[in-house]
Amino acid sequence: QAFLIALLDEENQELEDVYLVDRDGRWPGVRYSIKRGICGYVVRTGRNLYIEDLNEQIMRELDTWYFGRTERTVRSVLAVPLRAGERVTGVIAVQAYDPHAYTETDIEVFEQLAANAAIALENARLFAETRRLAITDSLLGVYNRRHFFELAHAEIERARRYHHPLSVIMIDVDEFKRINDTLGHLAGDQVLRAMAARCKAELRTVDVLGRYGGEELVVLLPETDMTGAVEAAERLRAAIASEPIVVDGSAISVTASFGVASWSADQDTRLEDVLDRADRALYEAKRSGRNRVCAL
């Protein structure tokens, strides 16, 4: 009367119920330690678990719980590990209100279902990981230039069609060459990673952060006019300059300059037009003394 797929988060040693459904429909998933519950037991042991007649003592021993409707008590539970090679990646489980609900044939069929599901889920994970690597800058963990432009062109078309505001921020680390020359390129890479992380922490989920080239980052701000974009740029500037970046035990004070431009249907026909104005604003910020925001 119920079906569950739980996937393992190896880094945090947690399970997440990604699909949980009974006769009343789908239920919201939860996360929990692999030290708890029936699914946690299956992940830890790597073995099937068939409980023919569930009772309170077994529930206490496994530190498990009911979900869904509770006017009828679950009596039978069958849980099988999902595997990618020798590695357990999750659990697939069913439960019934009657004791001794599953036969040996049922178990064999469910094991085959688990094997097929594990292959499909692992292929989906590998596809998602391959796509993530294809669109992400490997050093900074932000979108690479190609994917940034793909997303930005789509946002420009949306802004044009619906007459919505849109802005761009160009970011460049101040005196980055000096950092590379005095501390080395590995230190420079660490500075760029830290700067990108601080920017990501300050941006909205709808904002698009990408690596434009070298030490330059670019941010696309949907539904944001010039005033909002300048305020966002000031927050980013303050976040980067707020405290030194620690590199190999040394604290490095880092600042960045910002150029801001907003999409205008009257004067912009291409994404490149907005980026060009943001780039010119960035040049003005550099020329005016660095560690500041300029807008055009």
Rank of each mutant, 00 (worst) to 15 (best):
A251H: 13
A238C: 11
R204Y: 01
F176D: 04
R178Q: 13
V206P: 09
G249D: 09
V254M: 10
V246R: 15
R204G: 02
G228V: 00
A196F: 11
V274Y: 12
A278M: 01
T224F: 03
V206G: 11
G259Y: 04
G210I: 05
V254R: 10
T227P: 07
Y212C: 09
G213A: 13
E234M: 00
L220A: 07
R277L: 06
T182P: 02
N180V: 08
L192S: 01
V260G: 03
D273G: 13
V219S: 03
S262K: 01
V219A: 10
G184L: 03
A201C: 03
L217E: 07
R193Y: 09
I245G: 05
R198A: 00
V230S: 10
A239K: 01
D276A: 15
D248I: 05
Y212V: 11
G249A: 04
I252E: 11
D207K: 04
I245E: 00
A278E: 05
L236C: 08
G210M: 07
R270K: 15
E215D: 09
L209Y: 00
E202A: 14
A256E: 07
R237H: 10
K177W: 12
S264D: 14
E231T: 10
D279S: 06
L220N: 04
E215A: 11
L221E: 04
Q267V: 15
Y212I: 12
A241D: 12
G210T: 05
L186A: 11
A251N: 11
E223R: 12
D268K: 05
L203Y: 05
A281Y: 02
E223I: 07
G210L: 03
S253A: 14
I252V: 15
G210A: 01
S242M: 13
D268W: 06
V206E: 15
L275D: 06
T205W: 11
P222Q: 09
S253P: 13
D181Y: 03
D279E: 04
P222W: 06
A196H: 07
L186N: 07
R270G: 10
L221D: 01
A241K: 11
R204M: 05
R193C: 15
V247C: 10
G249P: 01
V230P: 04
A256S: 13
I252N: 11
L236Q: 00
S250F: 07
R198E: 00
S264M: 09
K200G: 10
D207Y: 02
R235I: 00
N180L: 06
Q267M: 12
D276F: 12
T269L: 14
D268R: 03
A241F: 12
I245P: 04
V208R: 01
G249Y: 02
I245K: 02
L209D: 02
L186E: 12
P244A: 06
E243Q: 14
C199A: 14
E223S: 10
R193S: 14
Q267K: 13
L271F: 14
V206D: 14
T205L: 14
M226G: 06
A256M: 03
R178G: 04
L209T: 00
A194Y: 09
M195T: 15
G213P: 09
G259F: 04
D225W: 08
H185K: 01
G228Q: 05
R277D: 02
I252G: 05
H185M: 03
K177C: 08
V191S: 04
P244C: 08
V218N: 08
M195P: 03
L209Q: 02
K200R: 15
D268A: 04
V254D: 10
R237Y: 09
L236W: 04
M226I: 15
R204S: 05
